[in-house]
Design a protein around this nucleic acid. Structure first.
Lengths: 210, 210
DNA sequence: CCGCACAGGTGATTCCCGTTTAGTGTTCCG
DNA sequence: CGGAACACTAAACGGGAATCACCTGTGCGG
């Protein structure tokens, strides 16, 4: 049986031999995106970095946003994996909630640009609908999280509010801290570790009976 | 065809029709800014709204950002006034903290675009240094707030952390809630009132002994 | 009444940006 | 060999912010 194969090869420019062009673009875009954020990642800059014309990017991606979103997808997927891992640990549900929120903040501070793209969107970056796929990933993370909060609630340890409102309060509070740490690095912040601890311990102490 | 006659006649609007040109521009810009946000408020659109060429805006403002920031200044000043008023009420310090945070969230939800410009900045909108003046106003609001937190602390009712970290935790948590409510209106949120209550009561219960 | 400085305004222009169009050369298959 | 498919390109388009070189009424000193 003669299999119809799709060669798909022949690099016009032998710049990247090991990687495929699409991969090269993603790599270059990631470098620029991490270093310069959304606005700094122009099509032309990415193309230059790859050593290719700007038009070439449209061979592999629908538009600029698709590139940055694919990068962010990768980042969020890592967060999802962490959440899944923590979720399955054989320890107290409250500890798992704390660890997931802590990992969330750690993730945000380590991937500020991807984090902003997904969680601080609508600031004129990307038209709501395009982010949907990536946002769904973020929502999957939240689902992992709320499941653990539900565990706490089912043992009657939730001091107030519904499972949803408690989980959302915890999540949004952490988001508030990291998003401001990211966007206002020059503010006169208390030590980050103390801040994270005060916020997390304070909220958990207030919401959960121990 | 028709001879290109130049109606170079001063299509200039009457000068003293109540508003000065600068004020007219701010008014038009505010309408567009509230309706369409930062990206939607283009120089050309604002100029069209006023009925003037885009160049004319540069007679009265250094650049686009100066216009939007002046609008935001007005908004933040209203918040500052509210904070000052609450700060002076002859009631329990904890109640005042709660009221200030509640007013903060109310303000954010009522002025989402100005709020984002000032508190979600750095997302590629405005170069950090230009926002400084407006941010200082925001910081003045925070000073009003932290003073009340300090009152609580001085009566020994702060359960954990320094005054700074407690105040910052409270503030950032509220910011997280409103900023996500603003930027992700389609998320499956718990009722807003319940969310605000759970977050505020939970955090205060955790941080303050009563 | 004249000349003139000038605030306030203009259309054209510059330089980016994302994206589109109309190709060009190379490879592969029938 | 012919042509389709591919990977890519240069040029251009439209729309952004900002700047430029010019106007043009207005009012004032003489």
């Amino acid at each position: 049986m003669t299999v119809l194969k799709k060669p798909q090869r022949s690099a016009r420019k032998p710049k990247g031999d090991g990687h495929t062009r699409r991969g090269e673009i993603l790599e270059a875009a990631q470098r620029i995106f991490v270093a310069e954020g959304y606005q700094g990642s122009t099509i032309r800059k990415i193309a230059d970095e790859v050593g290719v014309s700007s038009t070439a990017l449209y061979m592999h991606f629908k538009d600029k946003d698709e590139i940055l979103l694919e990068i962010s997808d990768g980042a969020i997927n890592r967060l999802l994996a962490i959440n899944s891992e923590i979720s399955a640990r054989p320890i107290d549900a409250v500890s798992r909630v704390r660890m997931m929120l802590d990992a969330y903040m750690e993730f945000a501070l380590s991937n500020p640009n991807a984090y902003q793209l997904v969680f601080c969107g609508n600031t004129g970056m990307i038209s709501e609908d395009k982010v949907q796929a990536t946002q769904d990933l973020g929502e999957a993370c939240f689902q992992k999280f709320i499941a653990v909060v539900r565990e706490i609630s089912s043992t009657g340890r939730l001091r107030m509010g519904s499972v949803e409102s408690a989980a959302q309060a915890l999540w949004t509070a952490c988001h508030g801290l990291v998003s401001l740490l990211i966007t206002k690095p020059d503010f006169d912040w208390a030590p980050t570790d103390e801040l994270r601890a005060v916020l997390l311990d304070g909220l958990l102490h207030g919401l959960v009976v121990d």
